[in-house]
Design a protein around this nucleic acid. Structure first.
Lengths: 346, 346
DNA sequence: TGCAATTTTGTAAGCGCTTACATTATTCTC
DNA sequence: GAGAATAATGTAAGCGCTTACAAAATTGCA
């Protein structure tokens, strides 16, 4: 409560206080903190002792202002409530932290306009680099970021045709491989529950992957019953119920993610449909819940943790070198064939 | 790429640029941005137009330095990977955002020392207020925060005996009520799987609640088999298996949270034990998974969203008034009696 | 219309730090 | 051991914004 020698009101020690106490200039104190090896040991010890005694901790604003960077990396994810993002962010944050950087997360609720705002907000708050999900956003936004010199990386996608850097996987290919498995099991009447494909390239690619697989096997991809809905268990339930009223009834329902699939599975049970005897269901992501439901969910495993970690490494490198992220990295997904996929009813 | 009239290297417009263009002083521009009603309309329009045309956006560091606050609220949670925290943080963030504040989250992995570091880090980064989970931390830490003038609020707890402000529920009472239900069902051989109770007052209180209920019904609370382990499905599995090897075998396993309970449930199935015929299992939190497993989990419902929202409101009020949070708010939990609780085997 | 009260705008002094450049101390080299 | 090369430290100029205070403009009222 009581400062020994307060001249500034809040009474917090400043660099100058430390300098005075350690009998050096403020420049030396600053160097001790930022590049300790540029200061001789004896001096450094003296300074650090003063820091300790005063309980000094640098003022963030001042540092950001003078150094023209904040040591903050921003990430905008669709929602914190899906375990896939939580997991990736956890890894992302750990890696950043190990490198002295701080993560600032915001969520967009899958709404492009909110994402736009959040990007501006994070940049205004001094994010030195940005992690975004997917590639789908306006050219103007990318120009804004480029003008600002903020390195950007897109996660969750890998598309050889897109020149912008990304860390992720080929959504289309992953879904195609899953779909091939479904078709191989004998299914001809497929249906899909997807997220809204506007402004969501991951969802769009997954739908495309399914259609590709269908076309390749001579099925009518254009006729695919497709419901676009929000990612939630409840929406998955409703969409599934709706699909089951179609004639002919689909024998396999491909879901855009595990959350939808779990909803579908639940509704199937409620409707008295046996899975996979009456209808097969697949997901995407391989979240924890996938192995907990009964029967366990056939899905695509995505290396979320690795994606988060590597995303951090790529942005750190960009920050360190001062060069925007140039390369894209493709991660592999793999199929997890579990209990919800079986042959169609005879 | 090309700035019309660059004098500073990065070429970003500053307050001064806007002022010049709008033909006013920098003070006026600043006022337009921060308290628009203190500027006459004609001027304001002129200024905002200039802001628009220049694509101006304020420098965060400079603003923080001059205003001595950052508009940032920090939160340190044990982990982002548990849905309960994700959900609460989502609500917390939304409420903050609606009030022009930004959330900075960090996670401590349930380790007090990491939490300590993170608190310092967030404060150093200019967090104007802090949300923490539980009350369990050193006096020194609280002193540090008080000295810094940072309002603090503890979530997830409500303890009438603790003078520090909190928003949450009475963990002990909630668990006691659940335990009473278990005992009422006829169980006498109880066992518990908990998180480590060191540095985790929520876990400690839940254990205490169970013991209270036992004592009240004449059971030997001291003899309660208690396994302390990390919150994860896998750890829940292992702990459950261990408990089932005891003689006499517990007929009801009370878990400190739903994640542990789901692990226990899974292991029960693997061991060929019928739930609740052979053994009853209960959780705590009522996360989404609780209703998805088979049978659905008996647990305690916690209003995570409301907690997050109200936490934000309380801190916002503290920030606005300049007075630390004084009151504590108690939220109600309620029992969700579902399929995993039944009478003990005959 | 004239003067005081009120509103709007301007002036300028920092906020606490980093860093280019200047200065001083130390180490090498022959 | 003198002079050059190198390392350590100091000096001081901002970084871009907010805000107390001063000045100017506007309004109200007799």
């Amino acid at each position: 409560m009581n400062d020994d020698k307060s001249d500034t009101l809040p009474g917090l020690p400043t660099l100058a206080d430390v300098a005075e106490r350690a009998n050096v200039s403020t420049a030396t104190v600053s160097r001790c903190l930022n590049s300790p090896d540029r200061v001789v040991e004896a001096t450094r010890e003296r300074v650090l002792k003063a820091v300790q005694e005063l309980g000094y901790s640098p003022n963030f604003g001042a540092r950001a202002l003078a150094a023209r960077r904040t040591g903050t990396v921003g990430a905008i994810i669709p929602t914190m409530e899906n375990a896939i993002f939580a997991r990736a962010m956890q890894a992302f944050q750990e890696e950043l932290r190990d490198n002295g950087l701080t993560l600032l997360v915001a969520s967009s609720a899958y709404r492009p306009q909110v994402e736009d705002e959040q990007i501006h907000a994070l940049v205004a708050r001094g994010a030195d680099a940005l992690l975004l999900i997917g590639h789908d956003r306006s050219e103007a936004l990318y120009q804004f970021l480029e003008r600002r010199g903020v390195p950007v990386l897109a996660a969750w996608v890998h598309d050889a045709d897109n020149p912008r850097p990304s860390i992720g996987f080929d959504n289309r290919k992953a879904m195609r491989m899953l779909a091939e498995e479904v078709i191989r099991a004998g299914h001809r009447d497929l249906a899909m529950i997807s997220a809204d494909i506007n402004g969501n390239d991951r969802a769009r690619e997954r739908v495309a992957g399914l259609r590709e697989a269908m076309a390749a096997r001579g099925l009518d991809a254009e006729a695919l019953p497709l419901i676009q809905t929000r990612y939630s268990i409840e929406h998955g339930r409703q969409a599934f119920a709706k699909l089951m009223r179609r004639v002919p009834r689909p024998t396999a329902v491909i879901c855009g993610n595990d959350v939808l699939a779990v909803g579908a599975l639940q509704m199937a049970r409620e409707m008295g449909l046996h899975v996979p005897g009456d209808v097969s269901i697949t997901g995407f992501d391989d979240i924890e819940i996938a192995t907990l439901v009964e029967p366990p969910l056939t899905t695509v495993h995505v290396p979320h943790r690795a994606m988060g970690r590597q995303a951090a490494q790529m942005l750190i490198e960009a920050l360190r070198s001062g060069v925007p992220v140039a390369e894209s990295v493709e991660l592999q997904t793999d199929l997890r064939l579990r209990g919800t996929l079986g042959p169609p009813p005879a």
